[in-house]
């Protein structure tokens, strides 16, 4: 049973200031599979990844990775556990003062005692996997958005982690680099036997690679299942999201007063 899922999220509550972001989220992420977490923008998907990575602490509930409660670990144990995880940030988050090569070499240099020649081999291997071996001498500022994300991906898998978290990997990409990233995530998952968690609101791309999908909205899990199961869900909110309808149970407008009243009030308080 424990072998089946790598990450268990149980009854997670989290709020920022007065705003409740999660009101009891339960997730179970299977080993070796690609699990997608989807939901409209602003539902705290990135926050969820930060909670899994232990960068934020929940108000209640727990996150268990490989049988260990992430938020009960000491600072040092937490940092040791993170060596077994990789995370791809939305912006790539490359170290701007290091070249592409050094960025990918960074985790190897700090966590291993490998000799320089072996570091070079590993880095070139990882860069080859994302197709950027030729760009190793460039600085992050010289890369395009898609390339930045691929370098960040190479860095995230440099230590051969067991778990990799993708934060919105497809946002702001042109169709070609989007396709490249989709293929990369799938290939890496199969080749390295990774467990992947993809947070995204790009439904089409995500559904093509995901083995299992959670739809998160309003601080809860709205629906979960394989992509085929989700297509068949009848809940109108889930349908609206999956099929990308502009208005429906999830309103297009941010909560506001009546439009006519607002226009006629001339800015006076009501």
């Amino acid at each position: 049973m424990m072998a089946a899922s790598l990450v268990e999220v149980e009854n997670l509550h989290f709020s920022r200031g007065d705003r409740e972001i999660f009101r009891g989220v339960d997730l179970s992420i299977r080993r070796g599979a690609i699990t997608a977490i989807m939901g409209p923008s602003g539902t705290g998907k990135t926050t969820l990844l930060k909670l899994i990575g232990g960068q934020l602490s929940p108000d209640a509930g727990r996150v268990v990775i490989d049988g260990r409660d992430v938020h009960a670990l000491s600072r040092n144990a937490l940092f040791r556990m993170r060596r077994r995880m990789g995370m791809l940030f939305q912006s790539g988050a490359l170290f701007s003062d290091l070249s592409v090569f050094e960025n990918v070499a960074f985790p190897l240099r700090v966590h291993t005692d490998l000799p320089e020649s072996m570091i070079r081999d590993v880095v070139l291997m990882k860069l080859e996997a994302v197709g950027l071996r030729g760009a190793r001498e460039l600085m992050p500022a010289e890369l395009s958005g898609g390339m930045t994300r691929r370098v960040a991906l190479a860095r995230a898998v440099a230590l051969d982690p067991e778990l990799i978290l993708y934060d919105e990997p497809f946002v702001g990409q042109d169709p070609i680099s989007m396709g490249v990233l989709v293929q990369l995530i799938k290939r890496l998952n199969q080749a390295l036997g990774l467990t992947s968690v993809v947070v995204s609101h790009d439904i089409r791309e995500t559904l093509t690679i995901a083995d299992y999908v959670y739809v998160v909205a309003d601080g809860r899990v709205m629906a979960h299942g394989t992509p085929e199961m989700l297509e068949a869900v009848q809940d109108p909110r889930v349908r609206q999201f999956i099929h990308g309808e502009p208005d429906g149970p999830v309103p297009f407008h941010y909560q506001a007063d009546d439009f006519i009243d607002d226009i006629l009030s001339h800015g006076e308080p009501q």
Binding site: G86, M87, V110
Partner: peptide, 21 residues
């Protein structure tokens, strides 16, 4: 700027404590 560009966060996730590094 390192914080704004998530470099500190990504360093944490690589398992390197930014306070130390």
């Amino acid at each position: 700027l390192m914080k704004a560009t998530e470099q500190l966060s990504s360093m944490e996730m690589i398992g390197v404590d930014p306070l130390r590094r």
